[in-house]
């Protein structure tokens, strides 16, 4: 068995008195890709944001490499350097150039030498075909380009796991494929451990080692990827796949 990266134990989350996540349990191992599927409002974003402390949870625990994370600001700040996250809305910093966006966290947070990080950044930019845009500002880029930069900005921290929340959802269709290819390459070539929330079912089927199917804040299925798409166990999951035209 490969090393355990993340484990979630009996996690519950409330907003006020609304119970949003019910007793979530799962484990993610090194190199695995977990896709988080489920209808809109089922709690996918909330769950993924609990994993890097952007949301606090009401009870339960998250373990990173076997160690229970004490949910203090300071601890989360430490651990976030190991847990990369990319959002639907890219959220590049508009006051910084592409290169400055990429260099900010490694040089300020990890205190790595600027010229070395810059060299690595150039390599990563080349990988995503944007080496010419190092000195551009985010507003000069298309959505797809911004999202590629956001991925590079997360990768340069050398995370042990990446959380990707609907990263193609606000892109024009012709931009989507490029981003999906980047994620596929991350998994297949670099064996990056990832949790992916997506509505691209074809992509999910192809990349998922494990599928969590969420509805109303409950895990209805926790199934190996191939099995889930070949034959979902629950009626609800079957309906969901059908509604996604799959």
């Amino acid at each position: 068995m490969t090393e355990e990266i993340l484990r979630v134990e009996n996690l519950n989350k409330f907003y006020g008195d609304r119970h949003i996540l019910h007793d979530i349990n799962f484990t993610l191992h090194q190199g695995e890709v977990l896709t988080l599927l489920g209808p809109s409002g089922s709690g996918k974003s909330t769950l993924i944001r609990c994993l890097n402390g952007l949301e606090d949870f009401s009870s339960g625990a998250v373990y990173f490499k076997g160690e229970k994370i004490k949910p203090t600001d300071k601890n989360w700040q430490e651990i976030r350097q190991k847990i990369g996250m990319v959002f639907q809305s890219y959220d590049l910093f508009p006051n910084l150039t592409v290169m400055e966006n990429i260099l900010l966290a490694p040089t300020k947070v990890q205190k790595r030498a600027k010229d070395q990080v810059a060299q690595e950044a150039e390599g990563l930019l080349k990988d995503v075909g944007l080496e010419k845009y190092a000195d551009s500002y985010p507003r000069e880029l298309s959505g797809g380009q911004k999202q590629r930069i956001a991925i590079v900005r997360a990768l340069i921290m050398h995370p042990e796991v990446m959380l990707l929340d609907e990263v193609t959802a606000s892109l024009d269709p012709e931009m989507v494929r490029g981003i999906l290819q980047i994620m596929t390459k991350l998994s297949k070539k670099h064996h990056m451990t990832m949790i992916i929330v997506t509505h691209e079912m074809g992509f999910a089927e192809q990349i998922a080692d494990q599928v969590l199917f969420l509805e109303d804040g409950r895990i209805l299925e926790n199934t190996p990827g191939k099995a889930f798409f070949a034959q979902p166990k629950t009626e609800r999951a079957r309906d969901f796949l059908e509604s996604m035209d799959f």
């Binding site: 890097n52 952007l54 990369g84 590049l92 910093f93 900010l104 947070v109 990890q110 956001a150």
Partner: peptide, 25 residues
């Protein structure tokens, strides 16, 4: 708020977030 979150997600401290992301904007 998404600017704050993406800064925090990169591991920036609150002070760094202010200094490099929020204040310049």
């Amino acid at each position: 708020v998404t600017q704050k979150e993406s800064g925090l997600a990169l591991g920036l401290s609150k002070t760094q977030l202010f200094r490099y992301v929020l204040l310049p904007q």
